[in-house]
Each structure stands twice: as C-alpha cells, then as structure tokens.
Amino acid sequence: MVAVHAARTSTQRRIALINPRFATDERAGHAVQLFDSVLWVFKGTTHTSWLTGAVDDAQVVVVHHSEPAAHLDAWRQAGKLIILLSTDEIHHPAGPRTLLYPFPAVQVLSMLERVEAEMDGATSDAHVSSATAQRSGPGTDPWSFVEALRTLRSLGNATMWLECKGERGVSIWIQGDGSRYFCDNDTAAAIRTGSLELGGLTLQKGKPPPDNLRPRSRSELFWFATYHASAALAPWLEQKTSYRLLRWPDFGCLRPSDAALRTAQIRIVAALSEAPSSSAELAARSQTSIETAARTMNALVTCGFAEPVVTTAPTPPSRRQNHAPVPAGGLKQFLRNLRQHLRLGAAR
C-alpha cells in the first residue's frame, strides 16, 4: 500500500514527461497524460515533491515505449532513470520500471517510491533547486481535474481530504475516495454551469470541510466537471468504440438549466438505453449535435453510467413494440403537440 504523506518535506526531484512523438498508438499520449495527472493530484501529498520540467534538468524521465532506443541510451548515460509507459502488453509488459496503460495511480506512486529509493542509494545530492523548475501548469490540460477525480476514485482513500485551491483560497473539498464533495452554493452553481475553471485549481491534501457546508453528490462533481471539460471525446474514450448504458444518470440532480440542452441530453441517454452506440452514431440517432453527444458520452462514461462494448457486429436498436394506442395523427405529431402544450424543451 502506498502511503500518502502530508506536505512536510523539502525533498524535491525533477521529472520529465516526454511527448510521444514517435508513437502511432494514440493511447501513448493518454498514458503520458495519465501519469502527469497522477503527479498533479498527489502534488504535496507524497514524501518527495516531483517537479516536472525539461529533460536536461530531470533526474527521472518518463517515456512511452515507442521512444527510440538511442534516446533512452543517451538519457541513461547522463545518469537519468527511465520509467517506461507501455501500451503494448505483449512486447512491453509491466515490470519494475514499466507501467502498462491504463495503470492505476497506486502503481505510479509505488513506482516513484522505488525510483526514489534507488536515487537515494545512488546519490547524496537529492535536493534539487526549485528555482529552475518548469512545471507545466495544470490549467493547460482540460482533462487534468477530471483525471484527478478518476484517480481519487481508483485509490478509494476515504480518510483523506483534498482541498482545491484557487486565487481566492480553498473553494472545494473532496473526500479522498471521490465519494462526496463540499463547497458553497455559488461554487456549486459555477461547477454546474462550467464557469469555474477547474483545471486552474490546485489540488492537495488538506483538512476536512467546514461544518457549515453540506455534502454534495459525487455524481454532480464528476458529471459537470467532465461535461464542461472539453467538446472533444475524453482521452479514455475511443471514437469508433460503441458504448452501452449501464444506468441512467439522475437528471433530477444533473439536469442542465437550459431546456433545449436538457432535452438533448435526455434524448442521448434514451437512445443509448435502446442500443449501444459510438459517439457519432449516438449524435445521429438522437438527432443532437456531435459536441453534445461527445460531452454527454464523456460524462456518462466517467461517472460509470456507460461502458465500452466489445462486439464484432453492431447491435441494432431493440425492436420494442408499442402496445399503447397510436394517436390519430401519428405518434410523432402527437408527441410534438404534447411537448408544445407542456412547453417541454425543443419540440421536434
């Protein structure tokens, strides 16, 4: 078990994450991103403070397995330790210095502890000046906050509390297993509308929330943080993969205030409940925009409401018979009229 420590040590080490320029597998980028997210979320909570920066100054280099061997040799000769991120289990299986994507955060932390111990044995000069640190800011990655939430959930450490700090101090408290969060009503409203730049917050171990804040739903934070993160599919989703609905999100809690968007989201989930679909298929079947379908799919999968389906053939929508009487003008016209009568979202 990896221990998560309070921020109490002055030990700092430099680590470089290498952009996988030579990879043909798009998951290579996801792997590096995941590693970076783990570093970010546990910043200040581990014994060593890992500062990301340029490879020349780094003591540890994190690379995808596609990196040319000549590069690895050069870095090793320069005294740097290499951590390999693999997306190819057959040729690059998990090992003492190899993480197989998708890897849980606990493996990253274990790996770093081992590397740290190795470095302590190899050099007495473990203190690195932070003056030249060039950590890439968390706000540059729209998925960093969501990745942090995913990591928390995978670790499941309910005894820990994390504080999200912005320019005005702590605004969000998250239980260590991601099961609950606390904030004031204004902050919650900003999370729901996407007006709070979550990627710009720093997340570190802290105290439990004040007593005057009420617990808020885990799904609320996961859903809205993911939905507003990006209009593109999340890095852990695939364009061509079909996803199936495991359960409906609680739209009693998670509905957007915009009526048209609410209708679109309900249509997307309803369509997914009828048959597994890729994001693009879902947009077509639900007659919604690609962006709304992608955002909703991101949120569904991140919240655990949908999962990828491994099938060799597409699954056709279920052919459910309508046993209710059909209105005289047809069901479609009837539903349109009823929507208009009740002033429901976008009448079609």
């Binding site: 739209f251 009693g252 509905r255 609410r262 209708t263 309900i266 249509r267 309803a270 369509a271 409940s273 009828e274 048959a275 079947r285 639900s286 007659q287 929508p317 279920s318 052919r319 459910r320 309508n322 069901l331 479609k332 539903l335 009823l338 929507r339 009740l342 429901l344 979202g345 079609r348």
Partner: peptide, 20 residues
C-alpha cells in the same frame, strides 16, 4: 420535476419511434 419525468417518458417513446 413532474415535467422532467413526463419529458423522459415522451423522449423514450420518440427515440424508439425513430429507431423503428
């Protein structure tokens, strides 16, 4: 809230109709 329930019911019917 009641409308949310009804809208979900109607939307489910709409999506099925379209799939059919």
């Amino acid at each position: 809230d009641v409308l949310l329930l009804i809208e979900t019911l109607l939307t489910s019917l709409e999506v099925r109709e379209q799939d059919l």
